[in-house]
Structure formats: structure tokens, C-alpha cells
Design a protein around this nucleic acid. Structure first.
Length: 565
RNA sequence: CGGGAAGUGGCCUAGUUUGGCUAAGGCGCCUGCUUUGGGAGCAGGAGAUCGAGAGUUCGAAUCUCUCCUUCCCGACCA
């Protein structure tokens, strides 16, 4: 490619509404432009990187036996009703009507479509299968974010495994796990596999691949000593047992005028570890109380996962008053009517002598014995792990790392196959429902994750595997015919060797050419100028280290090829 | 959807508090000359209904109202 013919509008300054590093640099380098919130146009340079990422993913999917498909983005309503997700996906699904008034949805993922195709498999002999595509997903995200990190329209590699049984699923899951490790290795992303919540996908188990980055949106609990890693939506930690003093015969109500917070109550003599924090939640329209220890935080995803609720939100102050008779700050679960489910964090099991709100403004109870005084529906893991707690595996002090979710693999089980009627006859002639797995990598998000972790004060520093070009030939003076001739010869040689080479043949000053090539992050640069050409020398610079060495003009082609191939 | 911030040529900003002449500067862009190893210099030039609409006023980028859009923090996800 000739830079004189390349459309890559670079900017000296980042547009004001870009904050994340990847967002700023991808805009400044002319890789992309925003059309509106959550929708980006890929410019030639951005598309090149995108497609290089996609190729790495595609090659690894093919390597584990994946077969590539291309499915429609627009789906009939009936298909999603069959799986129960037409309603389950809520506002996140884009929906529209065709001219006859028929409702359709834009695909957020393709379990339903692939499962419906899988109905054409009739024999166990056809299994296992791995099917995949790299295709556009649409999600009406409530809040698109940080450029390409979270958008409403994006290319995803989604693959699906089809097996006769769970052992087969496990094997395909592991294959994907290994393929993902190889993909992230080639993308030069330090992605760590972590235990994850399955969320709206359903299913038995899932692992997320998480790239540490301050621009991420997920918190991962990481043990520094063993290999325990889990999303906070799922992570657990060791709880230091607390022995309570024996409780009084019954809870004692006492006045707490003006006390509305755990902290204030602590100042009034009740340690946070002996308080119950009661949160009133609406689960699919039903009032529910979730209780954690005073010093702990409720993780809503955990509540959702363990109750199976679809629509889950904190109750409004009005709802709280209506159902419990008091406002937030004086709420508790003691003596609450039977029709309100009370879920209590497992770490509170067996505790006695606790303090909690009395459901009467300005009053609390103390001396509460959970088993005795509260009608607990279920003890479940509800609390969010905090940094400094201890690993439940090895006891080391846990840390919390902010991460970008680069990939997610799920063991789906039979949910979608069952909904679509994807069944096969097994070796015994019995009908079996196909067992599925589903595996996703967002291409654009990975591109952003690479940018987010590969830059310096001069600009981007792409790994050669995904760089828009592998090497740039920077011609210092376009009016010096010897220099131009040497550059053109080298350009032809490198192209013949299938190197992705860019020649900067613009009639611009050296400083501009250097700055641009550094901004767009081409991993290697050959600098050709009259000064060196005179002595038969050129310069070879590595973007990452900015180290330069002089190389004889006659050797440079071989040097570049050896470095890149 | 709740909370916060902001919309002025392609990009970054000033001007808005206290309404007042042709909306200013830098970068980028075009033409010419000059220059050619780190975003050059000189001269000339193009480019803006100041997010949109309504209102107040002799007069609105500036004040009022409504709406739209974007960004950031929370509830969702690759």
C-alpha cells in the first residue's frame, strides 16, 4: 500500500468525547469514526486490524474442526418465543416490524438459529459438530462505552458445539478453551480464564477470558498464590467465623433516631459484622428481601443467578414503605410476612445476637438470632468478595483486578436443542436431545483490548500479528531520486515476499511521517534517506522499543523478512 | 432508566458570568514560493445557519422553555 493513496485521517488531538486510551488512539490514528453512540464506521486501517483479528480466530476455530456458517442477523419472533427469550431478553433486543406488520428481532446471539438447523441432524453418527460464524450482532445496550469496548452493533465469532452427551460437551468445551488460549496468545492479550456467571444464557458452567485493564467493566477476584480466578459475580472467599455472645430470649427493639446507615449504627455500638443489611428487591415483580452482613455488599448477579429471576431491581422507596412499613435505613427481615421471600447470605447462617432494622422508622432490633427470629427462605451466596479477603482454596489474600471480557464460553446443555426439538437417535435407537455449548469472542472488542494494552506516549504499538501493516518504509526525501529508487525496490521485494508493507511516499516532512507511523503503531519501520543511502545504509526501527539499528541496503529485505516470518 | 458533564468550521479551544459591530485563535485543508532526518517558514484562500425549535429583546453563541445528541458514574454483556 502507498501512503499517498491511503485514507487514514490522523488527528493531532483526540476528540473531546473520547476518554479511554483505545478510543482516543483508534480515532486519532484514523482507524474508525463514530456514527452514533455504540456504532462505529471502520475505516480502511481499522478494518484491516479487525480482519486480522478475525483471521486468527477463524484459523483457530478451523483447527479444532469448526465449520464456518453465515446466519441472518434478522430473526423471526417465533424462533425466539420457542426458547422463551423473546420476552427474556427484554429491552436489549432490537425489535422491528416488516411491512406486513410481522415482528422480527435483530439477533443478539444465535443459539436459536443454530439449534433449529441442528434439527436436521438425525443420527448420533453425525455428532459431534462444531459450527461457527463471524457475524454481526445487535444489542440495544443501555450504555455503549469507551469506543469499541462496548457497542450496539459488532462482529462476534460465535461457535456452538453439538454433542450426544455431556461428556462430549466437556470435550468440546475444553477444545474451545484451548483454542481461546491460543487465540489470545496470538493477539498478545494477557487473558486469564475465570469462573463466570452464565447470566441470560443459562446453562451449567461458563468461563470468561479476562484481560486486565483499567478501562474494563468487570471485576475479577484473583488469588496471587494459587490459580483461583473468578468474576465477582461468582467468586467466593473464606469467611472468618464469628462467635456471637448468646442472644437474649427475644429480640429487643430499641430507638435509633436519625440512624439510617450501617456506619451510623456502628457508631451507636453495633459492629458492622454484627449487623444485617436488608435490601428490598423486586424479582419479576415480587417483593423479596436479600440480607448480607453489615460490612458486606450484595452482588445482584448472584441473587439473580440463584433465584432464576429475569427482571430484577431494587424496590423503590414507595414500594418499600408499602410492603415493609418503613423507609430504607430502618429495614429488616424480622417478623416479615410469609409471602415475602427472604434470602440470606450463607455467611450469616447460625449467627445470633445481630442488629437489624425493625421496619419502623427510627427503630432497630438487637439480639436477633437468625434461625429463631427470621423466616429464611434459603441461605445462598449473595455477598460480593472484597479485596483483602482470603482465598477459599489456599488462604492467600485475594486481589481484585479490573478487566475487559474478551471471550466467554458456556456449557449450555439441552435448553435450546430441547426448545427447537433437536434430537438424534443414539446407538441404542433411543431419542436423545443434543447437548450444546456456546462460545463467543467479540472481534472489535478484542481489537480495542489490544489497543488498550499496547500503546505509549507516541501512539499505538500493535503486535505484528494484527498490525494494519507489518512494516512501513519511510522515505525521508521524495525529491532525492536515489532514495526513492531504493525504497521502491525494497517495496517490491517485500511485497513479493508477501510482507504487508506500507511505503510512505507522501511529499511530507520527515517529522510528519515519523509521527504518523508511530501513531498508527506499525511494528517495524525502515527509514530511507539520502544521508544513509549515499553510504548504502538504511535504518531499521522497532516500534515497541524505538531501538534503531543501521542495516546495509543490500541486507534490509532479508532482515525484515526474517523478523516477520 | 437514575445521577453528573457537555454540544461553537474536519479536530482542539476562546467568547456565554455582565446580550451589542463582519463569531476569534491554533491544528488540519487549498494555491504559490521556499524548505526537506522529528508534526517547518512566508503570502494568499476556502470552510460555521454557534446541536434543533420556540420565546424574551431594538439586538441572542450569550437570557428563558422544550426537544435532540454525545460523554462519564451506576443496573446489563462479547
Amino acid at each position: 500500500m502507498r501512503w499517498s493513496n491511503l485514507f487514514t485521517p490522523t488527528l493531532r488531538e483526540a476528540p473531546g468525547d473520547a476518554e479511554a486510551a483505545s478510543h482516543q488512539l483508534l480515532l486519532r490514528g484514523g482507524f474508525m469514526r463514530q456514527l452514533h453512540a455504540g456504532h462505529y464506521s471502520m475505516l480502511p486501517l481499522g478494518w484491516k486490524v479487525h480482519e486480522k483479528v478475525a483471521k486468527i480466530v477463524r484459523d483457530e476455530m478451523n483447527a479444532i474442526g469448526g465449520q464456518e456458517f453465515l446466519l441472518p442477523a434478522m430473526h423471526p419472533k417465533a424462533l425466539w418465543e420457542a426458547s422463551g427469550r423473546w420476552d427474556g431478553m427484554g429491552d436489549e433486543m432490537f425489535r422491528l416490524h416488516d411491512r406486513s406488520g410481522t415482528e422480527v428481532g435483530l439477533g443478539m446471539t444465535h443459539e436459536e438459529v443454530f439449534a433449529s438447523i441442528a434439527t436436521e441432524i438425525n443420527s448420533y453418527k453425525t455428532l459431534p459438530q462444531i459450527w461457527y460464524q463471524i457475524q454481526w450482532k445487535f444489542r440495544d445496550e443501555p450504555r455503549p462505552k469507551a469506543g469499541l469496548l462496548r457497542v450496539r452493533e459488532f462482529a462476534m465469532k460465535d461457535s456452538y458445539s453439538l454433542d450426544l452427551d455431556h461428556a462430549g460437551l466437556d470435550a468440546n468445551f475444553d477444545k474451545h478453551h484451548d483454542a481461546y488460549v491460543r487465540i489470545f496468545d496470538q493477539l498478545d492479550l494477557a487473558a486469564m480464564p475465570v469462573e463466570a456467571s452464565s447470566g441470560a444464557m443459562g446453562g451449567a458452567g461458563s468461563i470468561e477470558f479476562m484481560v486486565p485493564s483499567p478501562s474494563g467493566e468487570d471485576d475479577v477476584v484473583r488469588c496471587p498464590d494459587c490459580d483461583y480466578r473468578a468474576n465477582v459475580e461468582r467468586a467466593t472467599s473464606k469467611v472468618t467465623p464469628i462467635t456471637d455472645d448468646p442472644p437474649p430470649a427475644e429480640p429487643e427493639k430499641f430507638p435509633t433516631p436519625g440512624i439510617r446507615t450501617i456506619k451510623a449504627l456502628e457508631a451507636a455500638g453495633a459492629p458492622a459484622t454484627s449487623q444485617m443489611k436488608s435490601m428490598i428487591m423486586m424479582l419479576d415483580g415480587k417483593v423479596t428481601i436479600a440480607v448480607v452482613r453489615g460490612d458486606q455488599k450484595l452482588n445482584i448477579q448472584k441473587l439473580q443467578d440463584s433465584t432464576g429471576a429475569i427482571d430484577l431491581r431494587p424496590a423503590t422507596p414507595d414500594e418499600t414503605v408499602e410492603h415493609l412499613g418503613a423507609r430504607p435505613g430502618s429495614l429488616g427481615a424480622v417478623g416479615v410476612a410469609n409471602d415475602i421471600a427472604i434470602y440470606v447470605d450463607a455467611s450469616l447462617r447460625g449467627r445470633t445476637n445481630l442488629t437489624t432494622g425493625a421496619n419502623e422508622d427510627d427503630f432497630h432490633y438487637r439480639g436477633v438470632d437468625i434461625e429463631r427470629d427470621i423466616n429464611v427462605a434459603e441461605y445462598i451466596d449473595l455477598r460480593e468478595v472484597q479485596a483483602g479477603e482470603h482465598c477459599h482454596v489456599c488462604g492467600a489474600t485475594l486481589e481484585i483486578v479490573r478487566c475487559i471480557e474478551a471471550g466467554h464460553i458456556f456449557k449450555l446443555g439441552t435448553k435450546y436443542a430441547e426448545a427447537m426439538g433437536a434430537q438424534v437417535l443414539d446407538a441404542d435407537g433411543k431419542m436423545q436431545t443434543i447437548v450444546m455449548g456456546s462460545y463467543g469472542i467479540g472481534i472489535g472488542r478484542n481489537m480495542a483490548a489490544i489497543a488498550e494494552t499496547h500503546y505509549d506516549e507516541k501512539g499505538l504499538v500493535w503486535p505484528a500479528s494484527v498490525a494494519p501493516f507489518e512494516v512501513v518504509l519511510t522515505v525521508m526525501n521524495m525529491s532525492d531520486s536515489d532514495t526513492v529508487k531504493a525504497a521502491e525496490t525494497l517495496y517490491d521485494e517485500l511485497r513479493a515476499a508477501r510482507i504487508d508493507v506500507l511505503i510512505d511516499d507522501r511529499d511530507a516532512r520527515a517529522g510528519v511521517k515519523f509521527a504518523d507511523s508511530e501513531l498508527i503503531g506499525i511494528p517495524y519501520r525502515v527509514t530511507l534517506g539520502p544521508r544513509g543511502i549515499k553510504d548504502g545504509l538504511v535504518e531499521f526501527t522497532e516500534r515497541k522499543t524505538m531501538q534503531t539499528e543501521e542495516v546495509a541496503l543490500g541486507d534490509i529485505a532479508a532482515k525484515v523478512i526474517a523478523t516477520l516470518v
